[in-house]
């Protein structure tokens, strides 16, 4: 009977352990979730800009972001050990966009690049208009150039860009230079020619 009693007395024990384990798991999940949410908030704009340089369809970018981050959250335990988890998100979302564009192309056979150029930017007075002007000009560049330039501008290294976009490093360097050259031309066409802020008497004031 004691055995029965004992067993009976022991039964709550595993249940307790179970509860503790559950509580522990919940605590860990909450922690993970919090960590992941922080990652999303920190990386969202950077990732979104990189993808926008590739694809002008905002709806598609939004869908791809959503799926990539959701996958990211499911696999956060692996992902958090990555060098830069944002790189994985960009890569994953890019494949998603490419897949969608490929199937869309099969259906309609419309080239996504042939959109009318956006209107030129008025006076650049503040940070926001500067960024908007940049966005407008980037849309007039070949997509690969724009993508490389935007990611470079957002602080990704050459190595990272090459890995994320599946390009060779030499291509990344060349596209970045080509994009900058074309952007300078566009800026000059829009009337932004002289760098007043850096004019030194007698010295050259070429670009850094």
């Amino acid at each position: 009977m004691t055995g029965v009693e004992g067993t009976a007395a022991l039964t709550p024990e595993p249940a307790d352990q179970e509860a503790t384990r559950k509580a522990e798991a919940a605590r860990r999940k909450a922690e993970d979730d919090q960590q992941f949410a922080a990652f999303v908030e920190a990386s969202y704009h950077q990732v979104e800009r990189a993808l926008s340089a590739k694809c002008r369809d905002r709806g598609l970018v939004e869908d791809a972001l959503n799926e990539a981050y959701l996958f990211g959250q499911i696999k956060w335990s692996t992902l958090r050990d990555h060098v830069n988890p944002a790189a994985w998100v960009v890569t994953t979302a890019r494949y998603k966009i490419m897949k969608a564009e490929q199937s869309r192309r099969r259906e309609t056979a419309v080239a996504p690049d042939e959109l009318p150029p956006s209107t030129p930017q008025p006076d650049i007075a503040d940070v926001w208009t500067a960024q908007e002007a940049l966005r407008t000009w980037l849309h007039q560049l070949p997509r690969r150039h724009a993508e490389v330039f935007q990611m470079d501008h957002d602080g990704f290294s050459t190595q990272e860009i090459a890995h994320i976009l599946g390009l060779t490093k030499s291509s990344v360097r060349w596209y970045r230079a080509a994009a900058k050259k074309r952007l300078r031309e566009l800026a000059e066409e829009a009337g932004y020619t002289d760098s007043e802020g850096r004019r030194r008497p007698g010295g050259s004031h070429g670009s850094r």
Binding site: I124, H153, Y192, S195, G197, S207
Partner: peptide, 12 residues
């Protein structure tokens, strides 16, 4: 203002 200024401004 030229491209470098605009880029610097956008980055801030």
């Amino acid at each position: 203002m030229d491209l470098d200024d605009i880029l610097a401004l956008a980055r801030t």
